[in-house]
């Protein structure tokens, strides 16, 4: 089976300072891979390169998917458009006939568990969590077979973050998309992903990969907690994921 996304020896630099080197990663169709690493290790840059938003200095990105979407750390909604129009914004370029768009917007809103009355509201009328739900619905509306998540729930409080994670788990199960999920939260990675990739402290390749037992939706709290404890205390791969001092980064 060909990969949904293949990164081959990706390297990148900002202003002459290397931030990523020799990154190799393959993601299978329907697989969710969480990419963890300390702040400033180049996770977001890698996601942007993989999504085609940034041209890598070295290496090759081979997408095996038909259509992708991305969910950013901030919802990035158009302030002048209602929630429904924001979701529909993604459909303008998806070659979907205009008459079919309202149904697709409604379907995406259902997957993101948005209330119908919220669809007529402007982003300024919505809470932070609701805005992120709209961003998720916008991504799901194009029926992507690959989604890039760039630390989407970092700014949310703990309870809201869990609800959003559950939403992504359910949506991934229903829509069967593959995903690269960037996060620095190991518990989030353990809840959402099939596999965890740890980026090297200095962005020099993928330090290692761990396959997680079972499917994301079937993993209970005890399993997640046990895995977290084991990874942080026994597995040398995860030893440094919280260690970095961003002041020493280029």
């Amino acid at each position: 089976m060909s990969a949904a996304l293949e990164l081959h020896r990706i390297g990148h630099a900002y202003f002459g300072q290397s931030v990523l080197n020799s990154i190799d990663l393959q993601i299978a169709p329907g697989e969710v891979v969480a990419l963890v690493g300390p702040s400033g290790s180049g996770k977001s840059t890698l996601a942007h390169i993989a999504a085609g938003l940034v041209e890598p200095r070295e290496g090759r990105v081979t997408p095996g998917y038909a259509r992708h979407a991305m969910i950013f750390q901030e919802p990035r909604l158009l302030p002048w458009a209602t929630a429904a129009q924001n979701i529909g914004f993604a459909l303008r370029r998806a070659k979907l006939p205009r008459r079919l768009r309202p149904a697709r917007v409604a379907e995406a809103a259902r997957l993101a568990e948005l209330e119908p009355q919220d669809l007529a509201k402007y982003p300024v009328e919505l809470s932070g969590g609701m805005r992120q739900r709209v961003a998720i619905a916008r991504a799901l509306a194009v029926r992507p077979d690959f989604i890039f998540f760039d630390e989407p729930f970092t700014a949310l409080d703990v309870a809201l973050k869990r609800r959003m994670q559950d939403l992504v788990i359910a949506a991934a199960e229903e829509a069967q998309f593959a995903a690269l999920f960037i996060t620095h939260d190991l518990v989030e990675a353990l809840r959402i992903a099939h596999r965890i990739a740890v980026l090297d402290l200095r962005g020099r390749g993928i330090a290692g990969l761990r396959i997680l037992p079972g499917d994301p939706g079937a993993r209970d709290e005890a399993t997640t907690f046990a895995l977290r404890q084991r990874f942080l205390t026994e597995d040398p791969l995860f030893r440094h994921i919280h260690d970095v001092d961003e002041r020493r980064r280029p």
Binding site: A51, M70, F72, E74, F89, A94, V142
Partner: peptide, 12 residues
């Protein structure tokens, strides 16, 4: 500029 990047993702 974040809105521009978002639009680029959706093939604008």
């Amino acid at each position: 500029r974040g809105l521009g990047t978002m639009a680029e993702v959706f093939r604008y």
